[in-house]
Amino acid sequence: MKELAYSPGWKWTGLIGGVLLVGLLMVVSVSVGIMRIPFDVVIDSFTNFNGSNQHLIIQTTRVPRTLIAVMTGGSLAIAGAMMQALTRNPLASPATLGVNAGASLFIVIGVSFWGMTGISSLVSLGFVGAAIASFAVYFLGSAGRGGLTPIKLTLAGSAIWALFSSLTQGLLIMNEKGLEELLFWLTGSVEGRSLELAMPVFPFMVAGFILAFLLSRAVNILMMGDDVAVGLGVKTGFIKLMGSVVIVLLAGGAVAVAGPIVFVGLVVPHMVRWAVGTDHRWVFPYCLVYGAAMLLVADISGRLIMNQQEIPVGVMTALIGTPFFIYLAMRNGGERA
C-alpha cells in the first residue's frame, strides 16, 4: 500500500504540522471549558500570576490536565504501535489485550486492601499489573500447538480482560467507600489530577519514548519475521523483551495517571501507518504527536458537548474509536478466519 506521505520532505512536514497542531490544541484545551478564559489572560497567568479565579483555574486544573492528556495520548499510541509490531496483529492494543484491566485490578487491590493512596505506590502497582497481564496474555496466546496466532492472542486478551475486570468490580463493590472516587478514575479521565501526582510518572513515560525510538530500527527488521530477523543478526529475544518493557512502561504509566482509556492505542497507530507507512522510525514519533492530539481533541470535545457536565475522555475515545474498530474488524476478519 502506498502511504500518504512518501518522501522524507512530506514526512517532516507532517511531523512538524502535528507538533504545531498539538501546540494549538494545548492552547485551546487551556482556555476552553465550563469557564471560558480569553487567550491573553492565559498568557498573563504565566507571566504575572495574580491569584485571581481565572489564573487559579488555569494553573491548578487546566494546565495539568492538558499536560497529562499529551503524555497519556502519546504513551498509549506508542504502546499500541509497539504491540501491533511485536505481535504482528493489527488489532492489538493496551485495551484489547487486557493490559489496562491488569493495571486497574492491581491499583484497586492496592487501594482497597492496603489503603494505598500515594501516587508513586499506585504507579508501581499499575506497572506490576500491566506486566502481569501482558505476560499472561502473551503466554496464553502462544500456548498450544499453533504457536502465537492473532485470533488466540485476541481471545486470550478478552478472557484475561473479563476475568480481571470482574475481579475489579467485585473488589469495588466490597468497599463501597472507595467506589465513588475510583469510579471516575476507572472510566478514564484526565481531569482533577494535580501535576504533583502525575509528575513522578512522566520520567517513566519519557524513558519509554526514548527506548521505543532506540528500538525502532530493530522493530522494522522484526516485522519481517523472526527467521529473517535472526538471519540479519538481530537478537530477537532481547528486542522483544525490550519492546515489552516499553509497553509496560507506557501502558502501565498511562493507566496509572489517567485510568483505562480505550482505543487510542488501537486507532492512532493505524492512521499513522496509513499516513507514513510501516517504517517505525517514523511511526513512533508520529504516534507520539498524533496520539497526544487525539486525546486532546477527545478531552476538549468531552468538555464542550454538554453544558455543565463533562464527559470523561475515556468515554469519548470509546465513542470515537468503536466505529473505526468495527471497520477494521470487518476488513481484517475475513482474511484471518
Binding site: 488489532l91 484489547t96 492473532p150 485470533i151 485476541t154 481471545l155 478478552s158 468503536t322 474498530f325 468495527i326 477494521l328 474488524a329 470487518m330 481484517n332 476478519g333 475475513g334 484471518r336 478466519a337
Partner: peptide, 11 residues
C-alpha cells in the same frame, strides 16, 4: 466468521 464475531463482540 468466528474471528470477526469475537472482534465485533469486543468492539
Amino acid at each position: 466468521t468466528p474471528f470477526r464475531l469475537i472482534l465485533l463482540g469486543i468492539g
